[in-house]
Amino acid sequence: MEATVNSTENKNKIWNGGNKPLDASYGKMMMWFFIISDALTFSGFLVAYGFSRYKFIESWPIADEVFTHFPFAHGKELPMIYVALMTFILIMSSVTMVLAVDAGHKMQKTKVAWYMLLTIIGGAMFVGSQAWEWNTFIKGEYGALETRGGRILQFLDKDTGKRVAISEFAKDLHGERTTHARKDGIWFTSEKALPAYTVQEVVAGFEAHHNIVVRTEFLDEEGKKTVLSRAASAEKLKDAVLVVEGANLVRNEYGNRLFADFFFFITGFHGFHVFSGVLINLIIFFNVIIGTYEKRGHYEMVEKVGLYWHFVDLVWVFVFTFFYLV
């Protein structure tokens, strides 16, 4: 695709047409421009997260306490380790992608194919890890109560300082309340699945166990969540109206409602990028195998998807910092 420069006077004026002033092909430049606009979309998301966090600066959930799970390590508190592993998987697949691009420059077809395959595997592993992370987040671990004002009350063992799940202390009151389904009554009303316990059962359990206290959303001077005394806890529990287990787009047991919303939107949007990146990589991978680029004489397509793939990695670096670290 080399353009011919047909007059001698054009040679000195690079912006007069007939050549590539920026020394980049049309396709590559468009990929870069797409990346710029996508980067602005992601920064819009992350800045909106920052906005909401500054708005609720004294009660925002602490990410360390939310993301403490690791597959096959039940009951252990391992903050950050799982996300660090995900980050590492993505950086690794980024590296195999650069190696594929590098092999493409040297026209080594088999090497390109192998590195592309490794990149695809890395991407698929990342998407799988994210699915596990979402599953854990949605299920929740401890459960909490929500007050009339929409604030979350969590439970703590006064003696050990550790979180207590509501299933550990709630008292079974043998209530007969069942989920209302459409077939049981007025056909146009129905409701979502009920939580395993009612507010009354949790409160009764609280009264029976004297070591349980309430932890509110509010952060104290040292940046830790405020733990109430036994009497203040009992007072606070009078405001409770709902049992919250896990997370959805309306409410979550971790604290501020917006926290789960931003988690779903930001990591979901990023995960969608990784997913589509894997699909695009697959297409390019098959094209490499059937020799499309060998015939074309250059592997620029690999370079272009490489740019997209690195961009996905780049975004994750920022999501990792602003969602899990800061």
Partner: peptide, 20 residues
Amino acid sequence: LLILIPYLTFILLVEGSYIY
């Protein structure tokens, strides 16, 4: 990116703490 992102960040974070 270097111009727009810090600009947006500055505006929205200041606004967020004002609302707080």
